[in-house]
Computed example of a mutant assay.
Amino acid sequence: MYQNVIDSDLQDGIDSKDLAKNLEHWMTELPQQLRRVPIIYLAIPGSHDSFTVDITMNSKVAPDAEKILQKLQCLLCLRYIMARWSKTQSYSASEQLRSGIRFFDLRIATKEREDNLYFVHGLYSDEVQTVLDDIVSFLETHPQEVVILDCQHFYGFTRQTHIRFMQLLTSTFGAKLLPYTEHMDFLTLEYLTTLFGYQVITVYRSDEARFGQPLLWPSANFPNPWPNTYNQTDLFNDLDSGLKSRSLSVGFVSQCILTPSLSYIFKNLFSNLKDKCGFDLEDIRTRWISKQCPGPNGGFNIVIADFVDLSDNLFAKTVINLNLKLLNVQNLKPCYPILTIVNEANNKY
């Protein structure tokens, strides 16, 4: 039965060798065979520190910054340097979505004398509600696309702030939020979007605050280890090790990023993160990703990067096209029991 499905997909022109021709709709246009593969086995591109595009030298120092930087925030020259090393993305939320990014790394903070919440990375960036509105607007017009929101860090949050933020998430996305489930091996794009209209998975990495919230997912379902190194050799050794040891029953996030130390930044004050950790890493990042294999055999799933706009969205295109490897019958064999479950579920609706 599954061989017939693959053959029919290939006959329909799926063997074009490019799944990233239309980045804005790449999930929608995946061959049906891939839309029936669990999302924990798909290759999905994401952005690291996703919403920093609005950081400028006039941005205020955020509570996630080093304490010494917070004390010296009145120095305009300091904020000028911080802005050059804090901005990790050149695209807005809408631009990232149109460029194929489907996993977002959220760092959220409060601001004194304000009720609004903001995204931060050393400095304050976009207002949270504005970005969430952009995401839901995209999803409304792209009903077959799915995003994963990783609420990674919270700064200045109290119990009441958590409650307010969780209410903001549920009120913004409503029925699009996928409720937490213990098992993930039946969560395919077809199951999520076609059968039930789910388009948002929200990981909430504060288990104490999240407890009892059925629409938010715990950290354990999407392990997201941080390499915390500026050495390229160490980075890729760490990434390889993570993939080898990952659990195949949940998702997995590979952070393909370099993290400069304060001493390194001080040695390169007049450079910036994009030059030192973007352009310098891009070629080897692309080569490493190209060698990976999604699915239960290879283990590759979600990968996040800085400056996803480089070289005309080469990062997203490279990741998305890894899914072509899943059209190989041998790579899909371990998925057969899962596909059986999905097909049985489909027959019920």
Rank of each mutant, 00 (worst) to 15 (best):
N323E: 07
I163M: 10
I101W: 05
E29V: 02
T52Y: 06
L132H: 10
G100A: 13
Y2M: 10
A83D: 06
L314M: 05
H121C: 08
N331Q: 15
I265G: 03
I44F: 01
V120H: 03
T188N: 04
S254F: 00
R285L: 10
Y230H: 11
G278S: 10
E140R: 15
P31D: 08
Q152D: 10
S245C: 01
R79Q: 02
L332N: 08
G242N: 05
V308G: 04
L149D: 11
I40H: 03
S92E: 04
Y118E: 00
Y180K: 08
R36H: 15
F236A: 04
G197H: 02
D12E: 13
D115S: 14
C151P: 07
V329L: 14
E114D: 12
L324M: 14
S219H: 03
F165V: 10
F119T: 04
G122I: 03
Q11P: 00
S261I: 06
N231G: 06
S92W: 02
Q96C: 07
Q292V: 01
I257F: 05
L332Q: 14
V136I: 15
K325M: 13
N297Q: 14
S261G: 09
S249G: 13
P260W: 05
L248G: 12
D9T: 01
N323C: 07
I338Q: 15
R287Q: 11
Q144G: 00
Y264G: 04
E127T: 12
A43C: 03
